[in-house]
Design a protein around this nucleic acid. Structure first.
Lengths: 146, 146
DNA sequence: ATTCATGCAAACGGTTTGCACGCAT
DNA sequence: ATGCGTGCAAACCGTTTGCATGAAT
């Protein structure tokens, strides 16, 4: 099974060359249910048997970033950047402080609040980032067993 | 005018030694209307004529962090940590993408939304971080002149 | 006197970059 | 054939740490 051309058209549309690396990176991010570090992507590529270097991962991510195909976010408090497919749809995140998993949440009830802040501060708000910190379902369950 | 003892009691209460550096760092953060990088604090200390090293700034900040006197946040997308006085009160932030200034906003209308997410995802939410990105009043004004 | 804070320089870790080579177009 | 993508190693930069010195208690 060769799915190395899955993102050919997408890349072409952005005037980017269609390489196996870029295809695989996009595929990994697309399949992931959470934002990934460059390292996680690198390790997954290795796991899939690809020979790739860290710098290529970073360069591919930056290229995709510039074309707005992926989004970079710094959700966590360590200094590792996180990347996820730019799904256009606006998302919030739930971060479990115990297992460090990040869950994406669609939908956003903050439009009214944004408007009120714009009025109050003279700001023109173009976007926002909301992260909720807490304990996930699974960690709550395991905690009880300790 | 010597205000190097302004935070003496606060430090004592936390079993921390009362040093000029710590006092000055707390004063700088307290006077600032926005979260500061370690570098900004370092430069301000220099400006005030204090002889101090970067590592002392970082160590002081970590000490104050452990006592919950300051809060560390990673609002921006570069990899510089930001620090601000822990005013207890929950805050959101407005980040001007043009001048990179960060404005703190008190008040929070997200309690209901939190509850709905908790119910929907089985999460127990303990806190959250909300950053709004946009153009501030001042930059809008200067933009028109360009 | 004891314990903790400080300065310096070196280490650390995530990310970026220079350069020569290789592949997509 | 051309220009962009890649691998490697070294550089980079914010932050942390080891160690000897200095200051607060």
């Amino acid at each position: 099974l060769d799915n190395s051309n899955q993102y050919k058209d997408l890349l072409k549309k952005e005037n980017l060359r269609n390489t196996k690396h870029r295809n695989s990176i996009l595929e990994i991010m697309n399949k992931s249910d959470q934002p990934l570090t460059a390292e996680a992507i690198f390790l997954e590529l290795k796991k899939q048997g690809l020979s790739i270097s860290f710098s290529t991962v970073y360069r591919a991510l930056e290229t995709l970033l510039n074309k707005a195909l992926v989004v970079k976010s710094s959700v966590t408090d360590d200094n590792k950047a996180l990347y996820e497919i730019n799904c256009q749809e606006h998302r919030h995140h739930l971060l479990c402080v115990k297992c460090r998993k990040i869950f994406s949440v669609n939908g956003c009830p903050l439009k009214e609040y944004e408007k009120s802040l714009e009025k109050k501060y003279g700001f023109t708000i173009s976007s926002h980032k909301l992260v909720m910190y807490g304990i996930c379902d699974h960690c709550k369950a395991t905690k009880e067993k300790e």
